[in-house]
Design a protein around this nucleic acid. Structure first.
Lengths: 163, 163
DNA sequence: TCCAAGTATCTTGATGTCGAGATATCTCCA
DNA sequence: TGGAGATATCTCGACATCAAGATACTTGGA
């Protein structure tokens, strides 16, 4: 079975036979899949009336467990965005009533963002829809292959997870 | 070796023990890696004075081979962006002198975007820098594992490459 | 030949993100 | 204890993207 990246790699090999193109086979696929995944996520979420960026924040809070509170700083590290972006996201989620901002009792510079009951309901529904869409996405691989893939990706991710 | 997604998966398992979380192990890693890869790409390119979006367009033209021409429509399918985005990108690349717009002799609605010699030099330099950065990224995997990974990703991508 | 439907590209307005800088508070050591 | 440097969050302007719609041209069938 060929995919679009096979074509792309061949084209590069034809044009730049002097280069070692091994990384292309992995990373072009990685970024293209990620793009497709984003679209699928967006789709899965619209039925639940939330946006991908909203899910990212709500999910981080939901995973944290009771009382569903994290600081903006923690949230931006979890979701890999900048502080300006997170301020903006929390503003908009607050306006929608899905989270609320509380002063951090332990640090007067700080703030805690807490999931509201509405936010919790929204994220729980959306997460189930996301899992269903992702399962569909994965259907070409059997269980053993899925594990193998997860394990290979983990190896690539480990260097970024240290400290 | 644990990565950040191991933590994330455990947190979900604790909070939602009712759900089958298998897809998370693959797709959370996929999107996080893609995010890291984007940052690494941006870094590799800045030394060459171009942006990631510029590279995407220039690379598609470069791969096409002499005379390095593609239509905007073809470019947007290659780079997975919308037509409005591509118009804007070609405008800016034209202003920088890296591409030029020509009327399509075969279709008066159409346009051809052609790489200039400056554009070709820019994309060739940037591509080598990108490959170097990506090789670094891949260094945790031996050759056999790289092939395995590419092959598993291909399987996921095939359904999108048909037609 | 004519026209309706299809196709290619561009325009426009809304939006989300980033990066740099501002402010307030905390930490820790001389 | 005083203060320098670190940290947490927010502000603001620039910018790239998207979605929807406009325009111009092409195609195929009546």
């Amino acid at each position: 079975m060929r995919d679009e990246v096979d074509d792309l790699s061949e084209a590069w090999a034809r044009e730049r036979p002097d280069l070692d193109l091994a990384p292309v086979a992995v990373f072009s696929r990685l970024s293209r899949l990620s793009r497709r995944l984003d679209l699928a996520r967006r789709n899965a979420f619209t039925a639940h009336g939330i946006e991908s960026w909203e899910f990212d924040v709500l999910a981080a809070l939901r995973r944290a467990g009771e009382p569903y509170e994290l600081s903006p700083g923690r949230l931006l590290r979890e979701t890999l965005v900048t502080s300006g972006t997170m301020t903006n996201r929390v503003d908009r989620l607050t306006a929608r009533g899905l989270v609320e901002r509380l002063p951090d009792p332990a640090d007067r510079r700080g703030v805690l963002v807490r999931l509201t009951p509405e936010g919790k309901a929204a994220v729980d529904g959306a997460f189930e829809a996301l899992l269903a869409a992702e399962r569909e996405f994965l259907s070409g691989l059997d269980e053993r292959q899925q594990d193998q893939l997860a394990s290979l990706l983990r190896t690539l991710l480990v260097p970024f997870s240290e400290r």
